[in-house]
Structures are given as C-alpha cells and as structure tokens.
Design a protein around this nucleic acid. Structure first.
Lengths: 117, 117
DNA sequence: TTGACATTTCCACAATTATAGAAATATTCT
DNA sequence: AGAATATTTCTATAATTGTGGAAATGTCAA
C-alpha cells in the first residue's frame, strides 16, 4: 500500500459523520445497509451522506452495489485490513518481546511478520 | 473511547509527514527516537516537525520524555490499540462466520468480543 | 409515459489546517 | 556567566474541506 492511499483512508475516517457511518457498517456486517438506512441512522441529509459515502468508498473502506432502486454499502474488510497492516508494518522490528501485550491481542504486529499487501 | 478522541487520532494520521513519523516510530519500537533523529529521517524543518509531533502526542498516538537535551518520542501502543479497537468495535455483531478471514488474522474483531477501552 | 422514489452531482460559503522562518525556551558544557 | 545545542512557540499565508439546498440521474410501478 502506498502512503498516499493510506492518508486518503485516514482522512476519510477523521470526520464525525464518516466515522459514524464506517462504524455502523462494521457492526452491520457484510450484508451492509442501504444509503437511506444509513442516513436515517446517522441523521444527515441525503446529499451530505452521499458525499461522505463517496469519500469512504474511494478510500477503499467501503464497497457498494445496487439492488433495485437502492444502493447498499458495506465495509470493505480487505481494504480495511490492508490499511491497518500498513500502519503497523514491521512493528517493533518483528520482535514480540519489545511490544508487550498492548497490541498483540489486537494486531498481529509481533506474533507474525506483517505482510504489506 | 469517545468518537471525538478517535477523530483527533485519525486526523493526526491523515497527513504525510505525521503518518511517516508514526510508522517510523512503530518500527523503531518502545525505545523511540529523538526529535532530531526523526527530523533527519523524515526531512522536515524542526519547527514543522515539532508541530506535527505535538499533534500526534495530543492524539494519544505518541508519548515523549526528555533525556538530557533531547526529547524522545515513541509509539503509544496502548493508545493505538484503543483506537483500532474503537474502529472495529462489535465487528460483524460478534459473529466470526460473517467476517471470513479478512480481518481475523490482523484484528481481533471476531474471535473475541472487542472491549471498548 | 407519467409519476414516485432513491441517490448523486452541482454550487457557494464558512471553517480548519500545513508550512516554515524568526524568536523564545530549556539544557548542557566550558 | 556565556556560548552552543535541541526543541518549541509564534506568526502569517496558502490550500483544503464540510455543509445542505436545488437540480439532475437512475430505477421501478402503474
């Protein structure tokens, strides 16, 4: 992953409405939600939401597909994984004993070498 | 973790110089590097770097301490872990079978319930 | 083909932020 | 005390971004 791509993704998450949308969809799972459902949950006008969904999708954090009149959005789990792997790449030079348990139970920074995808 | 705190952290990472600094320090491990070393690695003026280090530290992503004339900076692993846990909280409603393996080998989103710290 | 529905694109304004030089602060050595 | 070193604070300018109404687009039912 390129630095530029990662910055785009973090910028996408660094905004109240978008972070709310992303977390809502993480919790919703792979089936996702329609744009309308998301707007109702988050409480923003459709035009504003659409703008933010576009930013999240272009950043590789969401994917979308149409079903009849509605557009579904869901977390792009692989894109998200790549982002976090990039962030923690080569954590502690691969030496588990340096990290302690702080990250090891959440991110595979030490137990296994991180592969940049 | 509050949403506001997480936004501050993602905004901190959403910038070329700061993302470079953070990743450099992730790889440097708990011993950290001095501000001067970081400036040399990244190639920015001291005043610019200082500004960015302050933003990363206030966001809970770095910690710092003085040793004689120099100030060391290192990753705040616990702060980082809290941020990623917040992002992936209640992933897939806690149902491993929904996630596939995309995140499970990086983030404990499905294998164990994520605790918001 | 007309109308209703779901979402996106366009637009303009307000607010936030990156940058780096100069000066200030803090620490150490002689 | 005075000079040298390491870093931060101050300041101003340039550039980027969030917002939501109105209009446009795409989809479907009658």
């Amino acid at each position: 992953m390129e630095q530029k791509t990662a910055i785009e993704a973090f910028a996408a998450l660094a905004q109240e409405t978008r972070l709310g949308v992303f977390r809502l969809l993480v919790q919703a799972g792979p089936d996702g939600l329609t744009a309308g459902d998301i707007a109702a949950h988050i409480g923003v006008p459709a035009s504003t939401l659409s703008h933010h969904l576009g930013i999240l999708e272009r950043a590789g954090l969401l994917r979308s597909w149409r079903v009849q009149r509605q557009i579904y959005y869901a977390t792009d789990y692989e894109g998200t994984r790549r982002l976090l792997a990039f962030l923690m790449e080569d954590c502690c030079r691969g030496l588990p004993e340096l990290c302690g348990t702080a990250l090891s139970d959440l991110v595979a920074c030490c137990p296994k070498p991180t592969v940049d995808a």
